[in-house]
Amino acid sequence: MSLFVRDGAPVIVQGMTGHQGMTHTARMLKAGTNILGGVNARKAGQVVELPDATGVVRSLPVYANCAEAREATGAEASVVFVPPRFAKDAMIEAIEAGIPLIVVITEGIPVADTAYCVSLARRKGVRIVGPNCPGLATFGETDGATGTNLGIIPDGIVKRGPLGLVSKSGTLTYQLMGELSDIGFTAALGAGGDPIVGTTLLEAVQAYAQDANTKAVVMIGEIGGDAEQQVADWAKTHMTKPLVAYIAGFTAPEGKQMGHAGAIVSGGKGSAADKKVALEAAGIPVGRTPGQTAQIMREILTTRGII
């Protein structure tokens, strides 16, 4: 298994028939994701035809609900593109259907809805990634294997390699993937920019620590909350693989939300400077820019003989 999903795992898309859903279903299929259907109660019974990675056109049934879709496809993951106001029901449906991995791309979900679903998912042993994230992309368990692309992370930037990446930001994920594309990745996980997310930076770092193929980890944080400090606390005594971090938002003023719902310094808490101090105190280097972060990782990998 790569990070949270095995190669070739059957996947469904909730909100497949919407504009975003359709665009990215087509793209994920081309990237090698084994998508077998979609869910939309109002369009149940319809079939969407799209070519997969080998150019073969797949007929993807639209199911009325997740239980039906899971029954028919054996889905091990669902990607959620539904609008914010329907996202809670979509997540509950997927959790109740027993789909073990739910990747939520949707931005703008009320935090109470996310809190409810994350609590429910944890009770049921289901993993939510996101919301408000670019998704999860894996790059194959073995050389030459095709990974699974769940969400909107562009394919074709990187090849399989020894790095694991976790990030609160979409475009910074792509940026770091681009900077380190020659080295390659096992997986890239967008944790999301909301105050509450299903998979925290720490949970992703812990999973990479367990993953035999991952030799080093890049973490991209930003202002707000203390997810980075949690990583620092844990890594201090538990992390044996190199971990390099980047934090965005040093110039963000107090009390201003910087785009992401969770990106806010409030009551003097959640500043980039505090996160940097905590990470460095735990022996985790923090780059000044994405480029410098990549450079630090490169040097560590060379020193350790990983590349």
Binding site: S167, K168, S169, G170, T171, L172, Q175, G193, I220, E222, I223, Y246, A248, G249, F250, T251, A252, M258, G259, H260, A263, A272, R288, T289, P290
Partner: peptide, 17 residues
Amino acid sequence: IGNGAGLVMSSLDAVAG
């Protein structure tokens, strides 16, 4: 001006730096 909250924050930091 940039695309994505993280990249824009990062751009602000890069200018100030």
